[in-house]
Design a protein around this nucleic acid. Structure first.
Lengths: 225, 225
DNA sequence: GCATTGTATGTTGCATACAATCTTTCAGCA
DNA sequence: TGCTGAAAGATTGTATGCAACATACAATGC
């Protein structure tokens, strides 16, 4: 069928399609994906499918095994913890930089995003994950450091994956308060406070993820030899 | 001719070939690369060339322009500074973590790498860049955080590119002393000292890059609309 | 003279056919 | 019964042909 309107290229359409299904948790970890099958189901040839798959593999969502196929990548507890540890450093750095160079437009964007997050239907898990990701992406963008922004966005895919696999939506009033504190610190131009607020926020989330992953056992799985 | 021994796949061979030429500064920024021409010169088809080019583009070494071709990406001063700022955070984090979990094997590896760096022929610029990159990669690996390691390695390509384009080999005795200090701090298990030493080392390099890029004008260029 | 449109060209983007490689299975044999 | 090995099957990896797209330039109408 292949009805993607937005993307200019077929390969990009396939990429977005697969990425969406992966981040939604629709394709469970460990599952085999065959290029031929994907191509047939999307009514395109193997070539653009292959291109999309390679890109997703490089981003860490798929694992290519030589002459064997691609599998949906799982997440170990160690990997999730490692991701959050790096995230803590990068995003607190971004928050600090954003506070240093904040202006009226930045404040408006942050307030708007904050309002959008609070307006999300509490039952809509996927939408919450998306909104939270957009908030963190905005902070990264406001840092003014494009390299930092790129790395944060790259990690955000794994973060979304962690959230989906652990069902960590973190909709609590506590999370809202942390978000508000981050926005306030950045808006006030208080670099140290912004860094600290972001660090605390991510540490809180890490604790939640650790609890759920540890409680659920290996859970996500899919990383055998 | 296509004589690559190591890689198992042709696409990987093309990738390594192009990557090497790019990091060596052989392919100047702004230059157009045509798939057909590359394929013909390597005596392979366009398919693996295309795959390699896409990967290099995603890594930030090439820029794809729709239906027009790929260009070798240039580096602006802002981008170089942004890269080093992020690097400072990530690699100091890595040094600290490495110090926290250091053991005999790690000490041996660090000493060995340090000796290898000091043994490099001072005239061999490319070898110096490689050895320095290997040192930083080793520290990242010793951090024990695979996500951190991956990001550092990803940035290292741009770092090498910055070094080649600015001809920053930084062979000075000062740099050697900084490397030694980093190794000593990690070996002693002094987390704070290791972080500080790495931070200082990268800041020094940033200053050198800034001077050279600013002095040479836009220099590397190649980022027009 | 200027703007607009038509056309030529070079490049990527996609589809299909073929080759190489790995896994698995099953027959033969100790 | 367990083991070796070869052949078959399945999947990725590569090559090639064709179509679509973007740009540049010439032609035409205003």
């Amino acid at each position: 069928m292949a009805r993607f309107q937005r993307p200019r290229t077929v390969a990009e359409g396939v990429y977005q399609h697969l990425r969406r299904r992966l981040l939604a948790g629709e394709l469970e970890p460990g599952r085999w994906l065959r290029e031929q099958e994907l191509a047939a189901s999307l009514d395109v040839s193997r070539t653009p499918v292959r291109e999309a798959v390679r890109q997703l593999a490089q981003e860490g969502l798929l694992v290519i095994e030589a002459n064997r196929g691609v599998r949906v990548r799982g997440l170990t507890l160690e990997e999730a913890v490692a991701t959050y540890e790096v995230r803590e450093r990068l995003e607190s750095m971004a928050a600090g930089l954003a506070a240093r160079r904040v202006d009226a437009a930045a404040r408006a964007a942050l307030d708007e995003q904050l309002a959008a997050m609070n307006a999300v239907d509490p039952a809509d898990q996927a939408e919450h994950v998306r909104a939270d990701d957009a908030f963190h992406g905005l902070v990264a963008r406001l840092s003014g450091n494009p390299v930092l922004q790129e790395l944060v966005e790259r990690l955000s895919e794994r973060v979304m994956r962690v959230k989906v696999l652990t069902r960590d939506v973190n909709v609590s009033a506590f999370a809202r308060e942390q978000h508000a504190r981050i926005v306030a610190a950045i808006g006030a131009g208080d670099e140290a406070a912004a860094e600290a607020a972001m660090r605390e926020h991510i540490r809180t989330n890490l604790r939640i993820v650790e609890e759920r992953l540890a409680g659920a056992g290996p859970g996500a799985g899919g990383e055998e030899a």
